[in-house]
């Protein structure tokens, strides 16, 4: 049962160009994923440039950490760059995590999801929008990921301006709804 659910999710990830989270990629890199998930992310990485770049960025971060831990020796000219990168990372850590924590549910409140579903229903139809939201709920994404994945889908159906406008409207709905109902966004 779990396996068929994973397969469904994987098909959905590929179909809508939805990407694994950074936590997934780190776990993949460290070989901590179950074999089935490992194989799926490996397949995804073969054709997804965005995730390839993300993996490289993770590798850079890990290289920096290893260097700071004294595990790797680097040339002096690179050391200055690494220190600068470390400072930037410190800043980022102070700002809080960039990604929502990995979980089994979409990290967005039901109110926001209902607003987005209503918005998408204008273009796709009510059933298609509900189906899309139901699929999204089973994936592990933040508001940004949701907007980032609704955008390409709508661009592919409506064209650049129309699709971007829908993505912008969805982003605005997320912002407005979360402002109106503080704490409704779980991330």
């Amino acid at each position: 049962m779990q396996d068929s659910s994973d397969n469904g999710r994987h098909r959905f990830l590929n179909r809508f160009r939805i990407h694994p989270t950074n936590a997934d990629l780190v776990a993949y890199r460290d070989g901590e994923l179950p074999p089935a998930n490992h194989a799926r992310i490996k397949e995804h990485l073969q054709h997804c440039k965005r995730c390839q770049k993300e993996t490289l960025a993770i590798e850079e971060d890990l290289l920096l950490f290893n260097h700071l831990a004294g595990e790797v020796e680097v040339q002096p000219e690179i050391e200055a760059e690494l220190l600068e990168l470390q400072r930037a990372m410190d800043d980022r850590i102070m700002e809080g995590p960039a990604q929502a924590p990995s979980g089994n549910e979409l990290q967005v409140s039901p109110t926001i999801l209902a607003s987005i579903s209503k918005e998408l229903a204008i273009y796709l139809g009510a059933r298609a929008a509900e189906k899309l939201m139901a699929r999204m709920r089973t994936t592990m994404f933040s508001v940004e990921d949701l907007v980032g994945n609704v955008g390409p889908l709508m661009v592919s159906l409506l064209g650049d301006r129309g699709g971007s406008a829908v993505a912008g409207r969805v982003a605005m709905l997320c912002k407005t709804t979360s402002t109106q109902a503080p704490g409704s966004v779980t991330q």
């Binding site: 204008i122 301006r161 129309g162 829908v166």
Partner: peptide, 24 residues
């Protein structure tokens, strides 16, 4: 219907003050 969908998307974005330009 396709062109209406695009215009509505742009119009709603404009009305929501997200999209700064007029309809294409």
């Amino acid at each position: 219907y396709q062109v209406d969908a695009i215009r509505i998307a742009e119009s709603r974005a404009v009305n929501g003050r997200w999209f700064g330009r007029g309809s294409s």
